[in-house]
């Protein structure tokens, strides 16, 4: 059974079970967002009333806007820093402090958010930096840049180093070699890193909870305060919008990357 690459009944069952486990809760969530009844557990017929309500919920719209701004700023900075960190890890050779540096890059990937959030808050208090938009953004840059670094790093590991040498050999300075050869070739990974950083920032509750100022409630913070009051059709509707938007963005991005990659290094 395990001999050939191929799907046996056992593996098909495992796949179906795993995917059902992942998707059934989300499907239920989506379906109940169209429930006309205020009681989440009782089906009261189809309705889109909760979605109409969303648009009138000014607090929610404000929070969404804050989240989008934070995510855009954080993802962009994190992509720049994370790409540099990946280059440093893969390319810079054995510089002093490399192990410490690697530790600093990999630790935030697994660090419980409560600790990261608390630590960053205490830093901002210690340096007397008023909590607000920028504290959340800086905090998000810090933990998302490490995810970017890991994605770009794995691309750099398979990058043919002689491409860069060829550019140098043909007269390009290291900086020009990077921008004219290395960056275009690793661009899909960099873009994927940006997208991941963006969604991680958009999704973060705990670190934002610690570092956000009073006027800068993010979308997850707003949803969280509603969720704590229990399951409501409104939250289901917000969640559905979130799921649909993210799914659309991720799917189209991965399709675009696939297409782009096919253009660059595809085979006939």
């Amino acid at each position: 059974m395990a001999m050939r690459k191929g799907l046996s009944p056992v593996t098909v069952t495992a796949l179906a079970g795993g995917l059902a486990f992942l998707y059934v809760p989300l499907f239920l969530l989506v379906i109940y967002s169209f429930n006309d009844s205020r009681l989440v557990t009782v089906w009261g017929g189809w309705s889109t009333r909760w979605y109409r309500g969303l648009l009138q919920n000014q607090a929610l719209m404000d929070a969404a806007w804050v989240s989008l701004k934070v995510a855009a700023v954080a993802a962009t900075l994190a992509t720049a820093l994370g790409t540099l960190a990946a280059l440093a890890l893969v390319r810079a050779g054995a510089f002093r402090g490399r192990t410490l540096f690697a530790g600093l890059v990999y630790a935030p990937l697994v660090m419980p958010e409560v600790i990261t959030g608390l630590a960053l808050l205490l830093l901002f208090v210690a340096i007397d930096f008023d909590r607000g938009f920028w504290t959340v953004a800086l905090a998000h840059v810090t933990f998302t840049m490490c995810f970017v670094a890991v994605i770009v790093q794995s691309r750099l590991l398979t990058f043919d180093h002689s491409l860069e040498e060829a550019a140098l050999d043909l007269g390009a300075t290291p900086l020009r070699a990077f921008f004219s050869v290395t960056l275009p070739v690793i661009l899909p990974a960099v873009a994927a890193g940006w997208l991941l950083a963006f969604t991680l920032s958009l999704d973060d509750l705990v670190i934002a909870n610690f570092t956000a100022g009073p006027g800068n409630t993010t979308l997850p913070m707003r949803i969280y305060s509603q969720v704590r009051l229990g399951v409501t059709p409104e939250v289901n509707a917000i969640s559905t919008v979130f799921i649909v938007v993210i799914t659309a963005v991720v799917l189209s991005a991965s399709l675009a990357m696939k297409w782009q990659q096919g253009k660059v290094e595809g085979r006939q």
């Binding site: 992942l22 991941l196 799914t247």
Partner: peptide, 17 residues
């Protein structure tokens, strides 16, 4: 894909279940 959709929402989905 579900990882990209909100963590909070995924946890929330289980309350109803």
């Amino acid at each position: 894909l579900p990882f990209f959709t909100s963590f909070l929402i995924r946890v929330y989905a289980w309350i109803g279940i």
